[in-house]
Design a protein around this nucleic acid. Structure first.
Lengths: 333, 333
DNA sequence: ATACAATGTGTAATCGATTACATCATCGCA
DNA sequence: TGCGATGATGTAATCGATTACACATTGTAT
């Protein structure tokens, strides 16, 4: 049990060199002779040596560790981003850590405190809310961080997110080119920047084509499936001739689909929506979805963070918006 | 930038005590006087002191950190388990770490190596495959671990998982009591213990009711939606009168639903299936699903791990099977 | 031959916290 | 009064790796 670990000292003794030399071998210092290097490496292998990263971190005050702070674990979008981050950082020799803020600012604060204690080299945060004063803790400690997916008002910080306006614009534009004239909108929670931006894109596309924005077939709510279901009913009541609907997220879309299913309205409505998880499994009819480059967002955030970690120079915050892709199944183009 | 952190030494100087005393205050050692404690705490607060967990870990060779190793991040089941684990461990003062083995034994091995280097106090593993020799690395280092969701053949280790046999049995039994006589089966990949166990439960329920097991309406495959789609077609071809189908996981179930949808077969078939994510959103008709107690599994695994971490005594491996819950929508009972 | 650079290796301090042991004051009790 | 017990605090070693500096050896230029 709890077998004593082999230390640099043990290796040094065995190889008849000093610990300094062993350390140099470990760190590929060019000024150790071939023979010495070989001898030390042999000893290390034989004894099954492993660096003690804790000792190393204490000395060098760098952990090669980055924390991801996510409001939820059970969320495919966030996890896709997390996978992208992890993949990018791993190839650069960093270890990634995921923490859960459970959609609470308080918890977020606690987790950030933990990061500071664990002395991460950097952090990538999917904000739990629209307030971010507590991120200053990181600033004070000199820990760089990048926001993802959401922007926090009045916060000067790096951020990476989808170009929501343009994604919505492109998707709605495509539908119009396909012949849509009247397009309803399930607009979600306009307190969220993402929903607001998507709605903006929708409106802009209508305007560009000279289609008037008709409030009777536009409704806002929260972002859940129930609301999608309910609003779908309301929109159809307002305009039974409606044939196209734009939904700002997956759950609103699924809720709306369910309404149609339950009311046996079948393939009457064509949807334009954000996100596409499960679409190919669940739906049998045509749709347009805006696919966010989630892993790409993660990778970009990771790269941006690495730059901050590596360069000592200050530079102004950068906000990077990645272009989503428009997926159309069955529409003309 | 990179502001110097306050150390125990700084606090000691400020409070006019030795570092030993400050350390005692931090660790709530009972033999510091009230006044001293107060003075030191005041100094700590004033200077914004935070323990350096790295230095602490080096000295005490314990990190209060546990790693979760998951084959995927983008998987609601695994993440639900992870949330349960994190919740339980956090209240016990442990930090949780999630690593991605990307469904590969090789990657799993590499991540385990990382855990050893990072000196986690324990690990919870959702195995990426059916081989587990590399877990011996943990055994050698004296790091306790618990397997979750899957069992690895021939591995002597703690494990926590659903009682798949009984879950399947109960669900199929319920359907039979509801009047089902012929129940088809989309059996998934019988190389996986979970699929095998669920099939066993299905068969057992039929047998208990004296219903013969008819291979013509039973098919195996992998665990993906495509297969569910294809097999649904095959089963209906084999027996157009089929009205009940048991599917061993969510994706097979959804694939089968899609087949019905596309072929406008509507509510002809009643499904009995494992897992229920999105069911209430996607489906409008009746179903029976087996709900696995995912968070509970996570919590149980965490508790079991904590016991191992805390007790020095060896004790034989324990395998714990938690009972799933049967959810029936629209069925008689 | 002399000086000086380049190369390879060792010595020892250091990172920040913990803790065994030492020290000293105080108190109770015979 | 004197003894040990108790309590409060300090001294210094320690965890394992890194690294500034010192030193020795060899090569090179003058």
């Amino acid at each position: 049990m709890g077998k004593q670990s082999v230390t640099i000292k043990d290796v040094a003794r065995k190889a008849h060199f000093s610990t300094a030399t062993v350390s140099r071998v470990i760190n590929h210092d060019p000024k150790v002779s071939r023979e010495t290097k070989a001898a030390v490496e042999a000893a290390m292998k034989e004894m099954g040596y492993r660096v003690n990263t804790i000792a190393r971190s204490l000395r060098s005050s760098t952990t090669h560790t980055v924390a991801i702070l996510s409001p939820e674990f059970r969320n495919d979008f966030f996890m896709a981003v997390a996978e992208g981050i992890e993949e990018e950082l791993r190839t650069e020799g960093y270890t990634t850590f995921i923490l859960n803020s459970r959609e609470s600012i308080e918890e977020e604060k606690a987790r950030i405190s933990l990061m500071v204690e664990k002395q991460v080299d950097g952090a990538i945060i999917i904000p739990a809310g629209d307030r971010g004063e507590h991120y200053s803790m990181l600033v004070q400690e000199g820990i760089p961080f990048v926001l993802v997916d959401r922007i926090v008002e009045g916060m000067q910080a790096d951020a990476v997110l989808s170009d929501n306006i343009n994604g919505a614009y492109q998707a709605v534009d495509l539908a119009i080119r396909d012949g849509a004239q009247r397009i309803g909108c399930i607009g979600g929670d306009q307190k969220l920047t993402s929903a607001r931006e998507r709605y903006t894109g929708y409106e802009r596309a209508l305007r560009m084509h000279g289609i008037k924005v008709d409030q009777r077939i536009i409704a806002f709510s929260d972002m859940h499936a129930d609301s999608g279901y309910r609003i779908m009913g309301e929109l159809l009541e307002a305009d039974p001739e409606l044939r196209y609907v734009f939904a700002v997220n997956l759950f609103l879309h699924l809720g709306a689909e369910k309404y149609l299913l339950e009311h046996s309205i079948g393939n009457l409505i064509r949807f334009i929506a954000f996100d596409e998880a499960l679409m190919n499994i669940v739906l049998s009819h045509d749709y347009i979805t805006v696919r966010q480059p989630l892993e790409e967002i993660g990778k970009t955030a990771a790269m941006q963070l690495l730059q901050r970690i590596r360069s000592t120079e200050e530079s102004p915050p950068r906000i990077c918006r990645l272009q989503p892709e428009i997926i159309s199944s069955g529409f003309s183009k």
